[in-house]
Nucleic acid binder design. Sequence first.
DNA 1: AACAGCCAGTGGTCAGACCAGTTCAGAGGC
DNA 2: GCCTCTGAACTGGTCTGACCACTGGCTGTT
Lengths: 283, 283
Amino acid sequence: MAMRDAAVDERDGRARLFHQVVVDLCRLIRDGQFRVGARLPAERELAERLGVSRPSLREALRALEVSGIVESRHGGGTYVRDAFDPGFISPLALALEATGDATGDLWEVRIVFEPPIAARAAMRAGADDLTRLEALVEQMFELAPDLARNDHILAVDREFHAAIARASGNSVAVRVVQLINQVLFDSRRHFTTSLERRLQACARHREMFDAIRGRDPVAARDAMLLHLHEVEDYILGGLDGKHRRGLERGDAVADARHLAAEQWVQASGSGMFAGEAKEGKIS
Amino acid sequence: MAMRDAAVDERDGRARLFHQVVVDLCRLIRDGQFRVGARLPAERELAERLGVSRPSLREALRALEVSGIVESRHGGGTYVRDAFDPGFISPLALALEATGDATGDLWEVRIVFEPPIAARAAMRAGADDLTRLEALVEQMFELAPDLARNDHILAVDREFHAAIARASGNSVAVRVVQLINQVLFDSRRHFTTSLERRLQACARHREMFDAIRGRDPVAARDAMLLHLHEVEDYILGGLDGKHRRGLERGDAVADARHLAAEQWVQASGSGMFAGEAKEGKIS
DNA sequence: AACAGCCAGTGGTCAGACCAGTTCAGAGGC
DNA sequence: GCCTCTGAACTGGTCTGACCACTGGCTGTT
């Protein structure tokens, strides 16, 4: 309680060993000593080279792994991850597990965050980004009719969102989006959707892709926002009492958020990003 | 390269032990077995209780610590952190260290993220949030004239932003803001600002506080956006060639972002959140 | 050339030990 | 009686050395 002198944290200078190792490894990676995709030296050797024991090194590696910087494969070695490559494991994704149900909060963050990122993707996407996005859209259309492959569709869906973040050219955004979506998508793994809903989502994805290819940030942002709301509504509507528990508390919150977001959509035609969007589609 | 079948990750069922421990601990915390602020059992005992060795348990604890869920104090024990309490250590904050300079990307994320969060704070802040925010504003005004205490001011500044996130009622937002700002503020520790600039920042903080207390989401969002741009501009303008290196690449990016954000400000009076903001200040 | 099996290398896990802070009750001084 | 100092018990931090399990390439066979 209280305020205990608000702030003032006195960053203790004494770092623990594993933290020092983390910093050292990060520096080595950043300086190009270990390049992206490269395999790190074996733990035993690396530990010796850094002057620490293997357990200490391993604690550092776990920290880096959880942060999505490296990846260890049993018997295969430890590799440096690409900051822009999707599919990393779990940074504060764990936070959800601990904090109880943060689903509502995660949804809100997603709705706040992804639309403007989509707008930036429309401003900066490169040729390879467009290729990737298009492939993912088509892949999703192909998979949609197959009601059995729920997991597979979710994976493609999630990768599409990651690809948009990647197209935004912002490495931090990629991480944030991946982090949020990992948790949100995991919670939907056993939540089968109707064919109709799937096709709607596909259509929305295509809309986003078209907007990004057409360099229309406003349209991209709006399509994303609409898409996210549709997904959320569908999930909320389809949940039975048991699965809904995590969202109860958020009801009041959801209302406010909803209201705000709807109005955001309505306000979207009024100039935001219009400078980049050559022909301002005033809706 | 390529696309290697885009998506499809086949989450290997075989989890490593430390990961299983992480999940177990998270469940225990979530289920109230270990409450927020409580001290966990000693490592030796906890390891035995979970049926793993101490090294394995420690790897799990490092993962949780890096994710801001627990905190270990040498000789003092391991404690469960409050999701809403600011000041945690380093989740993907490490990512910056490794990814080279992500400063530009971080700034962009901050500018995308904090304004809408400030708006939500204006909608939902409780009495205690207002108390805390006001105290932090006043504290910053008091410290501003003391040019020597740069670190201290930075800490208060950062805590103010964290407090806004906290007032938004979104636990995930708190984590994201803390994460971003930890890195960004650290990079400013040896960057002394002028008195004039400090007072401007203080004034802007007060504006935000007034907007939040007045339940005016639009004003809160706009004040935040303006504040962030002023800070960024000041930093960019004041950097000498050496320190600027990290932002070079971002120049083109910064322009686009800047443009977009300016227009966002201009568009802000047109209805967004107007439902909550009783008297819509059409600027 | 294609396949099966082997084996060195690498990460995963464990046990036990010792070092280094923290804590707090009890001895000592005021 | 109250405060201070002290030290033992407790807790996290680190290390050593060992063994298990998986991967991947080499080798020898077919």
